[in-house]
């Protein structure tokens, strides 16, 4: 995993900044791409997805970290999956109760937060070895880094693909909507371009290859 472990001397804001920048889960670690692309055709579902992920990742970090000395090593994966599933169920029930249309739009992708590698990756790589507060903040940082990339992709795709931004029309009706950007290939290519631009502006000193041990 990334070397983002906050030592005792580091300030607590470090995990948050790291998640957004130096060890951004999508750009640097290539984690969590699965759901990154599916919801990004429109900005609003992307924001909801980002918020849901921040909720699950931070609370999961907190709980795993509190339980880290009580969880037997052999069954730790199952325990982590259990905690993540419970948190995701909370998000799912909340969305169905108060934002039903959004819940329908997101469909199975809310449930798929369970298998989002960022959450399990951070809980394996960070929360099992660090204190509760640091793990909580690390969860927020990693999820925020993920949400920012999602947002960048959505902000490109929605105006060009549908002519709207957050559901409001920003381009005239006569503007030819690029159907390709709305469909699946547009998501992949937009993401490739975003990764390209970000890495061209802030080159990585050493290309940390995605660890094959996860996923």
């Amino acid at each position: 995993m990334s070397p983002a472990a906050a030592g005792p001397g580091n300030s607590l804001s470090v995990p948050v900044k790291d998640g957004i920048g130096r060890s951004n889960p999508i750009l640097v670690q290539a984690l969590g791409i699965c759901s990154a692309l599916a919801v990004t055709a429109l900005v609003n579902p992307t924001l909801v997805m980002g918020a849901a992920l921040i909720f699950v990742a931070s609370l999961n970090g907190l709980m795993i970290s509190l339980l880290r000395n009580a969880i037997p090593h052999r069954v730790r994966l199952i325990v982590q999956m259990l905690i993540i599933s419970v948190l995701v169920i909370l998000v799912h029930l909340y969305l169905r109760a108060y934002h039903f249309e959004m819940s329908e739009t997101l469909g199975p992708y809310v449930g798929l937060i369970i298998t989002n590698c960022i959450i399990l990756g951070r809980s394996e790589g960070f929360a099992l070895r660090n204190g509760p507060l640091a793990s909580f903040l690390d969860g927020i940082g990693q999820a925020a880094g993920y949400a920012l990339i999602l947002l960048a992709i959505a902000v490109i795709r929605e105006p060009l693909g549908s002519g709207t931004l957050c559901g409001l029309r920003v381009l005239p009706e006569t503007f030819p909507a690029a159907m390709l950007l709305k469909a699946a290939p547009g998501a992949f290519i937009t993401m490739g371009v975003v990764v390209w631009v970000v890495r061209a502006i802030w080159p990585e000193p050493q290309q940390t290859e995605h660890p094959e041990s996860l996923h």
Binding site: L27, A30, I33, F188, I189, M191, G192, V193, V195, W196, V197, R199, A200, P203, Q207, E209, H210
Partner: peptide, 12 residues
Amino acid sequence: PRPLRGLGITVI
């Protein structure tokens, strides 16, 4: 191109 290597080109 260097920034495109790895993740970028694979996704495209």
